[in-house]
Simulated scan of single mutants.
Amino acid sequence: MNRYIKTYTVPILILFHFIGLIGMVFINLERFAALSIYNLLLSVILLFISHASSQFNFLKLFIPVFVLGYLVELLGIVTGFPFGNYHYGEALGFKLYGVPLIIGVNWFMLVMGSGFLARKVVSNSWLQVLGAALLMVVVDYPIEQMASTLDYWHWEENNIPLSNFVGWFIVAIIMQVLFVKYMKRETNRMAVPYLVVVFLFFVLLNLFI
Results as ranks from 00 to 15, higher is better:
N124M: 09
L130M: 13
I27Y: 11
Y152D: 02
R119H: 11
G113I: 06
Y8T: 13
F94R: 03
I173Y: 01
L35N: 09
V180E: 10
N124H: 15
V137P: 00
M1E: 13
T187D: 10
G131L: 13
V197Q: 08
L117G: 10
Q176W: 00
I63L: 12
D151K: 13
G131H: 01
K60V: 13
W126A: 11
L178Q: 00
M190E: 01
V25A: 15
Y97K: 05
S125G: 01
L92H: 07
F108V: 02
F18W: 15
G84I: 02
E73R: 13
M109H: 05
H17V: 12
H87F: 11
L42R: 01
S148P: 09
S114M: 04
F62E: 10
L130Q: 12
I103C: 07
M136Q: 03
V177N: 00
K6D: 11
P100M: 10
F56V: 15
A191N: 06
F83T: 00
P100H: 10
G131V: 04
H51A: 03
E30W: 06
V99K: 05
L46D: 05
L178F: 08
P82C: 06
M1K: 14
W155F: 09
V203H: 04
F26G: 11
P193M: 05
V197F: 04
K95S: 10
L92Q: 04
V137I: 02
V44G: 10
R119M: 07
G93N: 04
R185H: 12
P161F: 03
K95F: 04
L41G: 15
Y88Q: 12
L21I: 13
F208A: 08
G113M: 04
M1Y: 10
F81V: 08
G84T: 09
Y141D: 05
L21S: 05
I12T: 12
G89F: 05
G20I: 09
V25K: 15
T9V: 15
L178T: 01
I27K: 14
F108Q: 02
N164L: 03
P193D: 08
G104R: 06
A34W: 10
V72G: 04
L204N: 09
M190A: 14
L101T: 01
M1W: 11
N188I: 01
K181D: 00
L162Q: 00
L178M: 08
